[in-house]
Computed example of a mutant assay.
Amino acid sequence: MIALTVVVAAIFGVLGLAKILAVPRMRVLAAKSGFSVSAYRGIGWLEVAGATGVALGAAVPVLGMLAAGGLLSLLAGALTVHMRNRDRVPELLPAVVCVGLVACYATVAFGATG
């Protein structure tokens, strides 16, 4: 559980921070996805909030579950954008892998608290 928590929190923490800082690659991805840099920064803040919630989920399980739900919602939006843009599998794969990781985290966390 700890390793999965660290992986999920690290992925979304790093990606969220990159969006907030509007690093060049994130600016390109924002434009490709049809988002303004400001809107992409907002997504980054949500990702950082989700990462924080997952990290704190060990101490406050309900927070971890809510964070996982929020991250899954963000990922549903990401997959929708990828499909709308007719992206190929290599572009979809990171979001699909993240869905799997967050779903596993939620399943393990719920099993530990439920």
Rank of each mutant, 00 (worst) to 15 (best):
L92V: 15
A39G: 02
A76D: 01
V62D: 02
G64H: 04
G64N: 05
L46E: 00
G44V: 00
P61D: 08
F35N: 06
L71Q: 04
R88C: 07
A68D: 01
M65S: 14
D87S: 14
L63T: 11
A31I: 06
G50I: 09
V81C: 04
S36R: 09
A67S: 07
F35A: 07
I43W: 13
K32V: 06
L63P: 03
G64T: 07
S33C: 03
T80P: 03
R88E: 02
T80H: 06
K32C: 01
G50P: 01
A58L: 13
M83N: 14
L75K: 00
A68S: 10
G70P: 12
P90N: 08
L75Q: 02
L74Q: 03
Y40G: 00
S33K: 02
V60T: 11
S36T: 15
W45V: 12
A67N: 11
A39C: 05
V48R: 08
G50V: 09
G69I: 08
L46I: 08
G50Q: 07
P90A: 13
A58P: 07
I43F: 14
P94W: 08
T80F: 08
I43L: 15
S38D: 02
T52V: 15
T80D: 04
A49K: 05
M83T: 14
H82Y: 09
L74G: 04
S73M: 01
S38V: 12
E91M: 15
D87H: 13
L63E: 01
L72W: 04
P90C: 10
A59F: 12
A49F: 01
L63F: 10
V81S: 01
L93Q: 14
L75N: 01
G34V: 01
A39R: 08
A67L: 09
S36G: 10
A55E: 01
L72M: 09
L56R: 07
G42W: 00
P90D: 05
T52N: 10
F35H: 10
A55M: 06
L66R: 10
I43M: 14
A51D: 10
A76P: 00
A58K: 11
V89R: 10
V54N: 02
P61S: 03
D87R: 13
V48L: 08
L74N: 06
G44H: 00
P90R: 13
G64F: 08
R88V: 06
V62W: 05
V81W: 00
L46K: 10
A68Q: 04
G77N: 07
A59L: 15
G69T: 09
E91Q: 15
P61F: 05
R84I: 11
I43H: 12
G44M: 01
A68R: 05
M83F: 13
H82A: 10
G77W: 04
